[in-house]
């Protein structure tokens, strides 16, 4: 699975920060997060709620929640510090070079526009395509993420999509500009296991076809074990263990990683 990965594509270095309290004090949530995602990797960030895993992913896109305040650290994408960029340049990178798929797909889609329109918008903004060309590409992309009857589905609204289909549409939206880095924030949480397995199979297949780098945020170690090649385990806003996926999961060094594995399998319960 692992082996020759390329040069660093996303480097998170000593990222620290927290939420500003009413008195101007900062409640820390990230305490020196450091990890590197190499080009071509299927990288996983795992942790329980409150570990800071989603916040780190959002920071990579420059979409930090309101009140969040960075106190130290850097996020470099292909050598450029993302946190130093202005909004206009960030907007150029988002969606075209780094894309994200959020957890609750139906909430992530805009309910008042058709799904097709929303996919088309992404490539029209970034690639300056004609309406007709954008439509053709969006339809092709929906077909590639295995949404049946792509043409008819283009004209439908998000509420007409099931959870699994909406997640596929979001994937189509994220992939239409062929990004170098795809961030998946809990992409299958809330979906049934059989649908989850189908979505993960699709992601693996799309990755193989496009040589894209993936950063998967999840709380499910089973998903990590079955799909990823590198992993960072997060707890209390910092990375407690990182490395090759097989190695970390079969021979964990950090006690928290060990506990997390035992708890995921409910091992000690008869």
């Amino acid at each position: 699975m692992s082996g020759n990965l390329g040069k660093p594509l996303l480097e998170v270095e000593n990222l620290s920060g927290g939420f500003m309290g009413p008195a101007g004090d900062i409640a820390p949530v990230l305490n020196g997060v450091t990890f590197t995602v190499e080009e071509g990797a299927f990288f996983a960030v795992v942790g329980e709620s409150g570990s800071g895993k989603s916040l780190t992913a959002l920071a990579a896109l420059g979409v930090m929640p309101q009140g969040f305040c960075r106190t130290a650290g850097a996020i470099r994408f292909n050598g450029t510090d993302l946190l130093g960029l202005d909004e206009a340049r960030l907007r150029n990178i988002r969606g075209s070079q780094i894309s994200i798929v959020f957890q609750d797909a139906r909430a992530a889609l805009n309910p008042v526009f058709t799904v097709g329109q929303q996919i088309m918008d992404v490539c029209r903004v970034h690639q300056n395509l004609s309406r007709r060309e954008a439509r053709r590409r969006a339809e092709e992309m929906l077909d590639r993420v295995r949404v049946p009857e792509a043409k008819r589905r283009m004209a439908q609204y998000p509420h007409e999509f099931s959870g699994g289909m909406a997640q596929r549409a979001l994937l189509a939206m994220a992939l239409i500009c062929q990004p170098r880095l795809l961030i998946l924030d809990e992409p299958t949480t809330g979906l049934d296991v059989t649908i989850q397995a189908d979505i993960l199979d699709l992601i693996v297949e799309l990755r193989a076809a496009s040589n894209m780098t993936i950063c998967l945020i999840t709380h499910d170690l089973g998903i990590v074990a079955e799909n990823c090649d590198r992993v960072a385990v997060m707890r209390h806003g910092s990375v407690c263990e990182t490395g090759d996926c097989v190695q970390v999961l079969s021979d964990p060094r950090h006690p928290y990683t060990r506990a997390l594995i035992a708890n995921s399998q409910l091992e000690e319960i008869v």
Partner: peptide, 12 residues
């Protein structure tokens, strides 16, 4: 069978 085999496991 489909349900059980779809659940991700930590088993290398």
């Amino acid at each position: 069978r489909a349900l059980l085999s779809a659940a991700p496991k930590i088993a290398f």
